[in-house]
Simulated scan of single mutants.
Amino acid sequence: MEFEILGGLTPSERRELIAACTPRRFRRRDIVCHEGDPGDCLHLISSGRLIVRVTTPLGHTATLTILGPGEMFGEQAILSPDARRTATIVAVTDVETLTLSRDRLDQLRQQHPQVERFLTASLAAQVRRLSAAVLEALYLPVDTRVLRRLAHLARVYGGRTPHIRLTQEDLASMAGTTRATANKVLRELEDQGVVRLGRGSVTVVDRMALERKAN
């Protein structure tokens, strides 16, 4: 598995960092961490998919995104000893990750100062994701936001006809809209032969058409 976030390191640095990780496995529906838990490690996702949820100020649960192989989470856990998890992470399939503890990362930073590039790259990537999400929420029509979230999920799941297991409520939450609006967009896509809807799932039949509509 290639981790894009490690692209700034040399091959030997990447090997050493990955060798310092501890493999972990989670079964479908396992809770990897709860929002508010102490954050003591980051996870590099080797296989499987996880859903990211947070609690809103009104006490509701909001779905932010789904993460897949090659991605990571828990960057903030390595910043300070009192860091807390900012989201609840749940496995939606069987999952394998490589975990790197804060203590082990600190050792690597002392031995190899160039590992700071890894930290800088991970934080910069997080800022880019958050900035893009804010811009979309402020300036894009709601239908386009639903299409973009669905196109992103198709890339996460991969394959010619990605079978995305999530509810319309989750998709609506990711796009910052209502379930009724997400359902309307999905029904239109189904009528156009772009997707096929199932119970708790969406199968993307025509990925190219979806990408065109999302741009």
Rank of each mutant, 00 (worst) to 15 (best):
G68V: 09
I51T: 14
R25V: 08
C33T: 15
L42I: 12
F26Y: 03
R49N: 11
V54P: 05
R27K: 04
E35P: 15
I78D: 10
H43L: 01
H34Y: 10
T55Y: 06
F73Y: 08
D37Q: 04
E71T: 02
I51E: 08
F73I: 04
D37Y: 14
R49Q: 13
G36F: 12
P38N: 08
P38L: 06
G48V: 01
F73N: 00
L67Y: 09
M72Y: 08
L67N: 05
G70L: 10
D37G: 11
T55D: 12
R27Q: 13
C41K: 01
V32Q: 01
D40R: 03
G74Y: 06
A77N: 07
S46G: 09
P57Q: 12
S47W: 01
G74M: 03
I51Q: 13
V54S: 14
L42H: 02
Q76H: 12
L67H: 02
G74P: 07
R25Y: 11
E75P: 01
G59T: 00
T56A: 06
P38Y: 09
L44S: 08
G70C: 05
L50T: 10
A77T: 11
G59C: 04
L67K: 00
L50P: 03
G39K: 10
I45H: 03
D40L: 08
E75C: 02
L58G: 09
I31P: 01
G59K: 00
Q76G: 10
P38D: 08
I66S: 06
R25M: 04
L64R: 12
L50C: 07
H60D: 11
S80E: 12
G68S: 12
S47E: 15
L58P: 01
D37K: 04
T63D: 02
V32P: 11
S47K: 05
I51H: 10
I45W: 00
A77H: 01
V32W: 00
Q76M: 14
V32M: 13
T65D: 15
R28C: 05
E75Q: 09
L79P: 07
